[in-house]
Each structure stands twice: as structure tokens, then as C-alpha cells.
Design a protein around this nucleic acid. Structure first.
Length: 736
DNA sequence: CTAGGGTTAG
């Protein structure tokens, strides 16, 4: 059927002067034999025998076949035709173009490039097609390289060229190069007369955050359209000028430009960023009016808008109307749930999504991890870690930061370290380092946190405001006063960061607990509008140091700012109680009763086999209360032998010694631990409990003894940090 | 025969 190469050569030499070159061109780009998988004997391809077929007939046949194959996007068929040309030695410049376009239609830009490179003359259309395909396929480097080659060869770029290259410059982050191309465009006079070119340019400047230049260009373009307007709107939303984005939207709609689903999704993002549910709802009704509710992207932004406005139920309603949600939509709704404090539902959704055979990506996984962190769900978190390892997202920096954060919040500093240290230096970023520092902080590893903070700067990472909060709270948790002061002064000399209340709060805590009240107060005086949190922190220090008068003074300051402040009342009551001023305690209780302020009751909880068991202080309502009581009794007997003495000074009620001891015995954390020990007798499992308030001093000592006597690791997360009890010692070093 | 804008993150 096919001609032998010799005959093909003979035929080819009889063509025009390019023929020799073209013969080589076709011969070299493809092997003579197609690989088996491509050599499908497709019946649709009916290639002519070359004997007795005229050149013009061949040309027609090839042209038709190429057009059809390109429409079918059948790469194999295009290759078969290409091979047939090779065998027949049929070369033709315009067929070279058609062949390249056929390859491009079949998404095989590399095959197209091979042909392109060997062409002696290239039409501007071919240049444009190659360049735009590269850039569309995210191979901007090659696209821009071709553009530069084109310029060097003296080919004049036209409106088609310009409308694709700017996206390439934006992708590669080459602002300067993009500007140079813009200069070339100015010479050509196409800048504002062609809306395709104009919107590409507006898009590029928007992506570089050059919103002023974007806006000036936009205003100069004569015939505006919806794509141009969307490019500008998107730019504004991405650089935090959401109000401006909405204004542009209003303006163009008034001018008669019809928004489409692309426009709506960006406008809805603006509403979400502004958390403006009023405008958001209005835009929603416009979406309905224009009939775009079914378009997937605008529905995703629609539900994100609702979740960012705090209307999580409306967000779920939108989601329920999705027939088959895609990964992005699922991820958005899971994210919405997490952001609105519905972590359990978020994890439920996450599981549902997997059941729908949709594989989570890095976005989904890090969101699910955030839900686990907030709830300190260690077991779930570990399962998601396994998913991450399986799906290969373990080098994604968002995901890794979320993993470190999850382990940190679950009190497993070792795992946080292990995940973090698995990162190569070039995979690190400020956020993952921050997560690690904060994990150290929660675990009470102050020295390690400070060391990592010093190291990160050695490796050229610029600390940000979160870094300072993390490292300062590490110092405050570990009582590292000198280090704290050093870091705080470095923060103050850092011109890029304005110290926030959080930073001050750490320092006030550190100074206050060290008993340096004057310095702490002087620090608060430096804050422009000191809020109650700062004063409350200092009030907490007063409690530790038994500073009754200072406590009273600070309380009145707090009540000036926030008359009904619950925390201040409770703290002052506690200060009076620990100083034994029972009359004052009674007065405070009456005041609080009159003001209808209620102390949030202490409670602890533990998760056993996916069930959460909650205990209040003195709470004997648990079904296994009798066993728990017995367990407590036996524990107390054992540890008293070892030297445990109940410290009744922590009982803040006016009771006699015996009653005090009894009250102490039924603190929620003790009940929870006794129950935990009852429920899991395996020595290697560690007991993990949570408490809504800070752990009390007597309980802290008690747990240390218990960890030794039962030979088990006990981890307690209180309102502020983790305590890891092991062999009679606690990771906090008794400073908390 | 070729061209421009959008959906999820700490």
C-alpha cells in the first residue's frame, strides 16, 4: 500500500524549490512506523493510494482529512496522516500550517512545535497559535520565549499576539518584561482600540496589583465589554478593593453591559469579602434574574458569599441545590462550615464527599485538618494525615502547616516536629514555621520555640505578626522573661510590623506573672486603646501574687471600659477568695447575681471510642459514677502514700477543711481522668483530656502523682495550653 | 487557520 522511501524521494524532488527541505522536515519529525497504539486501523481515515493521484487531489484529500481529525481531536489520526505525507513525500507550506493546527487542536503542542521549528517561513497566524497555546496550557515560559524569538526575527506582533502574551508575563511574574511588551503595543496603536488586547493588559496589571494603571487603561478603552469589566473587577477583589469592584459592576451594568456568570462569581466574592449580606442578597437576585444560578462557578461563589457573611444556613441551602457538586464546591462548603464554627458538620461533609468518590485535594485536606485542630480531634486528624500521605499532598505547604497546627493543637508536639522536620528548606515558608513555633508554645517548649524563631531569621525568613504572637506566647507559657523582652524589643524595632494587642498581652502576662507589675502597667500605657483583655491579663497575675489592692484598682479600670465585664468580676472574686477575704467574696457574688453575671462552670471532657464524656465539678451523674468514685478513692490512697497532700488553698469557697478536701476531690479534671483510666486499661494508650478553664494547682499536682502511680501518659489541654504528664512530671515545668 | 475575564486556603 505505502510507497517505499525511494519512490517517495523521487516524487518529492519534482516539487518546488522548498521540496528538499520539506522532505527532510516531514521525514525527521516522525518515525516511518507508527507505534502500535497509534496505528489504529480507523475506518474513518481513507487515505488515497499515491499511484496516479494528482498533487492537487492529494492536497484536497489531506486538507479534508486533517480538518475532520482536528474536529474529532484524534491525535492518532493526525499522526497517521502525517506519516502518510512522510511516505508520499508530499510537502506543502499551507499543509504544514494545517498540520500544526491539527496538532494544536489535538492538544499536542510538542508535535506542533517540532514542525514549527523546521518551517522555513512562518506566517504570523502560526506564531500566534503556538504562543497562545503555550500560554493557555500554562507553559508560559515557552510561549514568551517564542514571542521573543518572533520579535528578534522581525515579525510584527499583531492584536492576536498581544492578546495572549500579557497573560504569560503575568503568569511568570515578569512585570518589567510585560511593560516592555506594552511599549511595543503602544507603537502599534492597538492598545485601546482592540478590547481583546485591552482586557489582556488590564488583567496583567491587575494581577501585578497595579490597580491604578489597570483603571487608567480601562477608562481609555473605547468599546468596553463584559470581559474587560470582569478583568478589572477581579483585580479589585484580589487586592482588597472590594467596594471599588462593586462600583465598577454598577457602572458597567448601567452602561448596558450584560454581566455573565464570570462577572457574577467575582462580584459575589467582593460581597463575601465585605461580608455585606445586603448587597450579597441583591446580587443573588440579579444572578437569578439573568439566569446564571445554574452555572457552577457562580454557584460556588454564591455559597462562599453566604458563608463569609455568616449565613451558613443559606450557604447550605445553595449547596443542597447542586445536582452534582464538584471538588471545589465541596471544599468551599466544608470551608464555610469550619469558618462558621461547625466543625463536626464539616467533617461529616468531608466524609460524605469521599463517599461520593471525589478525591480531596490540598485545599480540602487542609480545611478538614483545621476542623480537627479546633476540636483537637487527634484520631480523626491522624486519619487525615494518612490520607495526605496516600494522595501525595505531604509536600504542599498549606497542608503541612495545617498538619503541624493540628498536631500542635492536639498536644502532640512530637508529631508536629516530625511532620515539620520532614520539610526541605525550600519547602518551608513563614506560615509553616509559625505553626511549628505555635505548637511549641502550646506544648510549653519555650526554649525550642525561641530557637526556631532565631533559626528562621538565620535562614532568611522574615518573621511576621503571627510569628511574634507565637514566639511571645511561647515565652509567656514557659516564663522566659528575658527572651520575651529581647524578642519584644526586636518587634518594636521592626518597622514592618505594628505591635498588636496580642503581642502586648503576651508581654503583660510575662511581666505580671514575674511580679513586675509596674513594668506591665507601663506597657499597657503604651497601647493606644488598651482593651479589657490586657487589663484582665494583669488581673490574672494579681491573683497569682495575691495583690488585692492592685486587683481592685485594675478591676475598676476594666469596668470603666466594659461596665458589665464578667471576667473581671470573677477574677476579683477569686483574688478575694485566695486571700481569704470571704466578706468581699460574698459581696462580689451578690453584685454578680444582681448583674446576672454567671461564672462559666468548669468542665472537662474526654473522647472514648468516638463518644465524648463531659464532667462538671462534683458531677456524679455519669452512669459509671460509682466506679469512678471507687477509682478516685483507690488512686488517692496510692498517691497519698507517695506524698500527695491535697492543697485546699485552691478551693475558693468558704468551707471547712474537710468540705474543701471533698470539693477538691471532685474537680472535673479528676473525674475525667478517673473515668479515662477505667475505660482504657491498656498501659500504652495515653489519656487525653480537655478542660474549658485553666487547670487548678492541686489537680496539677494530683495528675503528676497519678501519672507516676499508674505508669501512664496523661495529656491535659486547658484553656491556654497543653500539659503532658509523664512519670510524675509535667511538660510545663510547673509554670503555667 | 489565531485572541481577553471567573470557583476553594493559613
Amino acid at each position: 500500500m505505502y510507497l517505499c522511501p525511494k519512490i517517495a524521494f523521487k516524487r518529492s524532488v519534482s516539487f518546488n524549490s522548498f521540496s528538499n527541505l520539506f522532505f527532510r522536515f516531514f521525514q525527521t519529525t516522525l518515525p516511518n512506523q507508527l507505534p502500535n497504539h497509534l496505528n489504529t486501523n480507523n475506518s474513518k481515515l481513507d487515505l488515497p493510494s499515491l499511484d496516479g493521484t494528482s498533487t492537487s487531489q492529494l492536497f484536497q484529500t489531506y486538507t479534508n482529512h486533517l480538518r475532520q481529525c482536528a474536529e474529532r481531536k484524534s491525535l492518532a489520526e493526525v499522526k497517521t496522516i502525517h506519516l502518510h505525507m512522510n511516505k508520499s513525500g508530499f510537502p506543502h507550506l499551507s499543509l504544514g500550517n494545517k498540520l500544526i493546527h491539527a496538532y494544536l487542536k489535538c492538544d499536542s503542542i510538542d508535535d506542533a512545535r517540532k514542525l514549527f521549528d523546521e518551517m522555513p517561513q512562518r506566517h504570523i497566524v502560526i506564531w500566534n497559535s503556538m504562543i497562545s497555546t503555550y500560554i493557555r496550557q500554562k507553559r508560559s515560559r515557552e510561549g514568551i520565549h517564542l514571542f521573543e524569538m518572533m520579535v528578534l526575527e522581525g515579525v510584527i506582533a499583531d492584536e492576536f499576539t498581544f492578546s495572549s502574551v500579557f497573560k504569560g508575563f503575568a503568569d511568570l511574574g515578569l512585570l518589567h518584561e510585560g511593560r516592555k511588551a506594552h511599549g511595543r503595543l503602544l507603537v502599534s496603536g492597538l492598545e485601546v482600540s482592540n478590547v481583546f488586547v485591552g482586557s489582556a493588559l488590564v488583567d496583567m496589571y491587575s494581577k501585578f496589583g497595579k490597580m491604578r494603571e489597570s483603571r487608567l487603561l480601562f477608562d481609555r478603552i473605547v468599546e468596553k465589554d463584559v470581559v474587560l469589566a470582569t478583568a478589572l473587577i477581579v483585580g479589585y477583589t484580589q487586592y482588597g478593593e472590594d467596594g471599588e469592584a462593586l462600583q465598577v459592576f454598577r457602572d458597567v451594568v448601567i452602561e448596558g453591559i450584560k454581566p455573565n456568570d464570570y462577572t457574577f462569581s467575582s462580584v459575589l466574592i467582593a460581597c463575601g469579602n465585605l461580608a455585606d449580606m445586603c448587597i450579597g442578597k441583591q446580587i443573588h437576585s440579579l444572578v437569578l434574574k439573568y439566569g446564571f444560578e445554574a452555572a457552577v462557578a457562580s454557584r460556588t461563589s454564591l455559597l462562599t458569599m453566604y458563608s463569609k457573611c455568616g449565613l451558613i444556613d443559606d450557604c447550605l441551602k445553595v449547596f443542597d441545590r447542586f445536582a452534582n457538586a464538584n471538588l471545589v464546591t465541596w471544599t468551599s462548603v466544608i470551608m464555610g462550615l469550619v469558618q462558621n464554627g461547625r466543625e463536626e458538620s464539616a467533617l461529616l461533609m468531608f466524609r460524605q464527599m469521599i463517599q461520593c468518590a471525589i478525591s480531596p485535594n490540598a485545599f480540602t485536606l487542609s480545611t478538614a485538618l483545621r476542623a480537627c485542630s479546633t476540636l483537637a480531634m487527634f484520631v480523626e486528624g491522624k486519619q487525615i494525615h494518612a490520607l495526605i500521605m496516600k494522595s501525595g499532598y505531604n509536600t504542599d505547604r498549606f497542608t503541612v502547616a495545617a498538619l503541624v497546627d493540628m498536631y500542635g493543637k492536639c498536644g502532640n508536639t512530637e508529631m508536629a516536629i516530625s511532620v515539620f522536620s520532614g520539610l526541605e528548606l525550600d519547602e518551608l515558608d513563614v506560615v509553616s514555621v509559625n505553626s511549628m513555633i505555635y505548637s511549641y508554645a502550646q506544648g510549653g517548649y519555650g526554649i525550642e520555640a525561641v530557637r526556631l524563631y532565631d533559626q528562621m531569621q538565620y535562614f532568611g525568613f522574615e518573621p511576621n505578626d503571627v510569628t511574634y504572637v507565637s514566639v511571645l506566647s511561647a515565652c509567656s507559657n514557659a516564663g522566659l522573661l528575658d527572651e520575651g523582652c529581647r524578642i519584644f524589643s526586636s518587634l518594636k524595632s521592626n518597622v514592618r510590623i505594628e505591635p498588636s494587642r496580642d503581642h502586648y498581652a503576651c508581654m503583660v502576662d510575662l511581666l505580671g506573672r514575674a511580679g513586675r507589675f509596674e513594668e506591665a502597667e507601663a506597657l499597657i500605657a503604651q497601647v493606644k486603646n488598651p482593651d479589657v483583655v490586657l487589663w484582665r491579663t494583669l488581673l490574672g497575675a494579681c491573683k497569682i501574687h495575691g495583690k488585692v489592692e492592685l486587683g481592685e484598682r485594675i478591676t475598676s479600670k476594666i469596668l470603666e471600659i466594659e461596665p458589665g465585664d464578667e471576667g473581671a468580676h470573677i477574677l476579683l472574686t477569686n483574688i478575694y477568695a485566695s486571700a481569704g477575704h470571704w466578706n468581699e467574696v460574698t459581696k462580689m457574688k451578690i453584685i454578680m447575681k444582681e448583674m446576672k453575671l454567671k461564672k462559666s462552670p468548669a468542665m472537662s471532657w474526654i473522647e472514648i471510642d468516638k463518644n465524648v464524656h463531659t464532667f462538671m465539678a462534683g458531677d456524679l451523674s455519669h452512669p459509671r459514677a460509682i466506679e469512678i468514685d471507687k477509682e478516685l478513692e483507690s488512686l488517692n490512697e496510692k498517691i497519698k502514700v507517695m506524698g500527695y497532700l491535697p492543697d485546699t488553698s485552691f478551693v475558693l469557697q468558704d468551707l471547712n477543711e474537710k468540705e474543701k478536701e471533698r470539693s477538691l476531690n471532685y474537680h472535673s479534671e479528676k473525674l475525667t481522668i478517673a473515668f479515662g483510666l477505667l475505660s482504657s486499661r491498656k498501659k500504652t494508650t495515653c489519656i487525653r483530656i480537655f478542660k474549658n478553664l485553666r487547670v487548678c494547682g492541686d489537680c496539677h499536682t494530683w495528675i503528676k502523682f497519678v501519672s507516676k502511680v499508674v505508669g501512664r501518659e496523661i495529656i491535659a489541654r486547658d484553656a491556654k495550653r497543653f500539659h503532658q504528664f509523664k512519670d510524675g512530671l509535667c511538660s510545663c515545668g510547673d509554670y503555667w
